[in-house]
Amino acid sequence: MLKILSALVAGVVFGVGLALSQMVNPNKVINFLDITGQWDPSLMFVLGGAVLTTTVAYRFIFSKDKPVFDNDFQLPTLLKIDRQLLIGAVLFGAGWGVIGYCPGPVVASLGFGFEESLIVVISMLAGMLLCRAIIRR
């Protein structure tokens, strides 16, 4: 129960952060990627602020033996840089560039009641399922 509650709290904070940073605005995302046009570097500050905070906090957290509500830290074990990682990242970047949404912001913007978000979230889920059906790790 505590695990669920802490995840809920983390989710709310994440959602407010995404909205505050304007990552939820696809026009702003596209302007960030548009380095030869009307470049808006704001999202670099979002990533920078998030990475800085997380890097410092992770140092403290990983000095502990285990998380508060679980027996161990679950970190990715895969280390190899393979074709799947690269092709996946290229595809994600392409979709991101065309519609201006990435998974976090588009889910958070469901709370805004925009029709666009709902269309993207449903098709994103379909894309995830499709990938699972085709590729088995």
């Binding site: 505590l2 695990k3 802490s6 995840a7 709290v9 983390a10 989710g11 904070v13 994440f14 407010v16 952060g17 995404l18 909205a19 505050l20 940073s21 304007q22 990552m23 702003k28 302007n31 009307q38 470049w39 808006d40 570097p41 704001s42 999202l43 670099m44 500050f45 979002v46 990533l47 920078g48 602020g49 998030a50 990475v51 800085l52 905070t53 997380t54 906090a57 992770y58 957290i61 502990k64 285990k66 998380p67 508060v68 509500f69 679980d70 027996n71 161990d72 830290f73 679950q74």
Partner: peptide, 28 residues
Amino acid sequence: MENFTPYLSLAGGALIGISASILMYLNG
């Protein structure tokens, strides 16, 4: 540069970082 919002973005980013830290610290 259009609608550049460095402070809001930095604050929002910090919140996202705090969330990621909560999830790792409490749930791993």
